[in-house]
Simulated scan of single mutants.
Amino acid sequence: MTSSTVDTQRAAGDPGAVPGRSLLAINNIEVIYDEVILVLRGLSLEVPTGSIVALLGSNGAGKSTTLKAASGLLPTEHGEITDGSITFDGADITHIDAAERVKRGISLCMEGRHVFEHLTVQENLIAGAYTKGRPSKSDLELVYEYFPRLRDLRSRTAGFLSGGEQQMLAIGRALMAKPTLLMLDEPSLGLAPLLVQEIFGYIERLNAELGTTVFVVEQNASRALAIAHHGYIMEQGRIVLEGSATELRDNPDVKEFYLGLGEEGSRKSYRDVKHYKRRKRWL
């Protein structure tokens, strides 16, 4: 499927992938850091198989913590899940370690890209396949097909790449683990608008052509909702609104607070909206 085909489907109201049963389900979890700081407060959400799901919210809402809970990285930052559960492909993964989750098909691109700066582009990609053994030539070719710029830069030391090139490399490295679920933390962070558009175009293609399920955390709500099938909005560790991407784009509060389309053009907190009623999804 070409990118133009995807664009045509989007314009016609076809998301380009048919969401299936729940692949990732976060069920009423609470997360505490350092045994005292409560960050997630009964959070629940679902990521259906074959879909792109966006998690939106302001700084400090708990978005990155949600991804770390799903990927098993909380213990590295003295965090823990104290209540609730997380299931992946029907199995409870609440307390299994991060490496095992990668083996089961979960890959995370962390905020800030975090490439191995002293390694070459190709060495970074090979490192991404460590849970699957030595990668085949076809594995590398698949990444180079989606990110042709990386092919030209494969011998370049990663630390000398531009921000956009490092983001491509981070996504490509995650793909080397052959994930069923690709999670992305702020992929637009620090990138120019044209590069943001390019990166999200790649994400859309991976979902449409490879069937990769994508869970993306973003502050750039407009760009995320342009490719997502479903979205959630977080405030203070809770889901306060959820719906299809179309419903969220058309929601007047979302337009004002996250898309910058309100009459005053200002971003506020949902707590300041008297007519807004908080909603939780208890799965």
Rank of each mutant, 00 (worst) to 15 (best):
G50R: 02
L74F: 07
R113F: 02
L56D: 01
G60P: 01
H114T: 03
K63T: 05
V102C: 08
A25C: 13
S85E: 11
I81Y: 09
S71G: 14
K68I: 07
L56Y: 02
E80N: 10
P48D: 08
Y33E: 06
T87A: 06
S51N: 13
G112E: 14
Y33K: 12
E100V: 04
I26C: 08
I29S: 05
G50S: 01
I86G: 01
F88H: 05
A61K: 03
I26A: 11
L74N: 06
H114R: 14
V39Y: 10
D92V: 15
S51A: 13
E46F: 03
T94S: 05
G20V: 08
K68C: 10
L38S: 12
V36P: 08
R113G: 12
S71K: 08
V31S: 07
L45E: 00
Y33M: 00
I37N: 09
S85F: 08
D92N: 11
K103E: 12
G50Q: 02
T82R: 08
L23Y: 00
S71T: 07
G79H: 02
G90V: 15
G20Y: 08
S44F: 05
H78S: 10
S107P: 07
L45N: 00
S71N: 14
K63P: 05
V102I: 13
L74I: 05
I86Q: 00
E80S: 14
G105E: 02
H95Y: 14
A61P: 14
T49F: 11
L73W: 07
E80L: 04
K103D: 03
E111F: 04
R113K: 14
G79R: 15
P19T: 00
V31I: 07
Y33H: 06
E30R: 15
M110W: 06
L40E: 03
